[in-house]
Write a protein that binds this DNA or RNA. Structure first.
Lengths: 197, 197
DNA sequence: ATTCATGTCGAACATGCTGTTCAGTAACTA
DNA sequence: TAGTTACTGAACAGCATGTTCGACATGAAT
């Protein structure tokens, strides 16, 4: 015992609850989903729910580790792309990955998204950008603006593009969104109007 | 009658409810504030509350018109600043204005902010930037990226800087935040590292 | 296969907030 | 001052929460 083995019944119950939550988020949104809904949908006893999770939020967060992991893997291979010298964020992979599961991601980070999910993705991207920026600083010296502010700027802009893109039914392909993001971040507004400055 | 005059009692009640809501938002956050809290704090009867507003959200939104108006006035004079050719957003005025009432704005748009408030400010900034961008396009022709995406990018980045700044106790003066935002938007990441590109 | 631990069920319960109703009372307007 | 309008306060039904408990079912271990 104590061998890390989890009782089949426990696995089953947790799976049912997670699936029910995702279903309901897609159907009626996170906020309007109640614990009552979840246990009805999962066909699980009320007391069973509270034996596993503190509340709705706790259930959601227990599924976030998986999301983070999955996202991390999908985003990892995007760094070494050609001409990526100034690219501090895996934007192409992000657009592609979220676009593939756009129903889910739209429900989770679009419109009135789920705060804790947005925060999770935000933090992951921030950590990523911060690391690459540190590297860049080592190579090229300090930029003329506070690095932390720069990271906030980049992540904020990317998250805005992403949620807008999902909310508006992905009117451009991931490649174009990535391209646009790159041009704006690297060269700025002046350059996209054809200025050499 | 029907002369636009509002009964003093009505004015009084609404003022009490609005004040109570703001108080409670600052004290315990919007989400944790209940209608019960509000009417207790305002010392107003339960039925009176529902005679004026549908629910907590309705009360909040009824106060948003004022915020929008006030914000609009404070932000209006920031456009014609020197060297503002590429500046599509009144960032300096925004940092100054929110910084002055940072307790309130932090509670409303920082950390776990209030969705509808964030959306209101976001929309106001978006409309502002969109208008200036149209003007710029008339002068200089089409940029090489979709204008709507550009607006989303700029507003998203600015909102990110603003919330970060408020959440972190305004570690830089408004002028520096504005300056940083300008440099990143206008010239991009490459330029802040001293590249001429 | 039997045993024993553990998970689940389902019902009941106290609690708290919501939104509505209504008769009585107070305050404002004209 | 008269008449309209707003507020009060209490009561009510509805619903979701989170807890508890004994009965039951299913798993793991020998």
């Amino acid at each position: 015992m104590a061998k890390g083995k989890v009782d089949r019944r426990v696995q089953r119950t947790r799976q049912l609850l997670h699936d029910a939550l995702i279903d309901l988020i897609l159907e009626k949104g996170y906020d309007r989903t109640t614990v009552q809904d979840i246990i009805d949908r999962a066909n699980v006893g009320r007391s069973t729910f509270y034996a596993h999770y503190l509340d709705k939020q706790d259930l959601l967060e227990s599924g976030l580790a998986r999301l983070r992991e999955e996202l991390g893997q999908n985003l990892a291979g995007d760094d070494g792309a050609e001409g990526a010298e100034w690219m501090l964020l895996p934007s192409l992979a992000l657009f592609r990955h979220t676009g593939q599961q756009h129903h889910l991601f739209r429900a989770m980070i679009g419109g009135t998204g789920i705060d804790v999910v947005v925060k999770t993705i935000d933090e992951a991207l921030t950590a990523h950008a911060q690391a690459l920026l540190d590297q860049l600083i080592a190579e090229r010296g300090q930029p003329c603006v506070p690095p932390r502010v720069m990271v906030t700027y980049l992540v904020g802009a990317l998250m805005a593009l992403l949620t807008w893109w999902l909310d508006n039914d992905m009117p451009y392909p991931p490649e174009q969104m990535d391209q646009t993001f790159r041009e704006l971040t690297v060269s700025g507004v002046a350059a996209v109007f054809g200025e050499t400055q």
